[in-house]
């Protein structure tokens, strides 16, 4: 069973399968289904698919039904014209879509520029591997700055480097000067990144 068939089974809503068939034939049909997916699918966490809630799963499945030719343009439009929930759904769907750098990076960069911490975290999922290191470090630092939990950053320890450590140390110093602290998860990351002298 493919990933999207497993997700479809976990969601268990017949209208989604019918809409997918229509979208595969006529990609422009996705617009109204995508917009209405929240009220049709509900917004509850899916028991059979950890990490997904029903509206996001429905929207991801609609996106996964798009023919590969022209898909990047449809994704970009749906994201650009999307509500916050629609934008989030596009970002969360990127791994399921196996989106390449050309499709993903413009959307990830937009999400990182926003002040909505949900979009910021969603941009730091598995598809963040397409971001260059400076952009990725800045996004992680923005999480720390806004208090977004670092547990939501995919592959944090594998990718965190000395430059990120220097940036975190700078923020911690600035906070200390103001009588404030950095969140505990950031302090712990900085600690893990700081080399210890032997003996």
């Amino acid at each position: 069973m493919t990933d999207d068939q497993a997700l479809l089974a976990a969601l268990g809503q017949d209208w989604v399968a019918a809409a997918r068939a229509e979208i595969a034939e006529r990609p422009a049909a996705i617009g109204r289904y995508f917009a209405a997916a929240g009220r049709r699918a509900g917004r509850a966490p899916l028991a059979g698919a950890p990490g997904w809630q029903s509206d996001e799963a429905a929207r991801a499945l609609l996106l996964a039904a798009l023919p590969s030719a022209g898909r990047a343009g449809v994704l970009a439009t749906l994201y650009a014209e999307g509500t916050a929930a629609e934008k989030l759904a596009v970002l969360r769907a990127l791994p399921l879509l196996d989106a390449g750098a050309g499709e993903a990076v413009p959307l990830l960069r937009d999400a990182i520029r926003t002040n909505d911490a949900r979009l910021l975290l969603a941009a730091l999922g598995p598809c963040a591997r397409h971001l260059d290191q400076p952009a990725w470090r800045q996004a992680v630092l923005k999480c720390v700055f806004t208090g977004a939990p670092l547990a939501g950053v995919h592959g944090l320890d594998e990718r965190a480097d000395a430059e990120l450590a220097a940036m975190l140390a700078g923020l911690a110093e600035e906070r200390a000067a103001a009588g404030r602290t950095v969140p505990a998860d950031a302090a712990a990351l900085l600690d893990r990144l700081t080399p210890r002298k032997e003996g």
Partner: peptide, 21 residues
């Protein structure tokens, strides 16, 4: 409208202690 959503807000929203706004 069929679109009014008054369910409880999700708790998953990040803690905003340090947020800009």
């Amino acid at each position: 409208s069929g679109r009014l959503d008054l369910s409880d807000l999700p708790e998953a929203a990040p803690e905003f202690e340090g947020s800009s706004i």
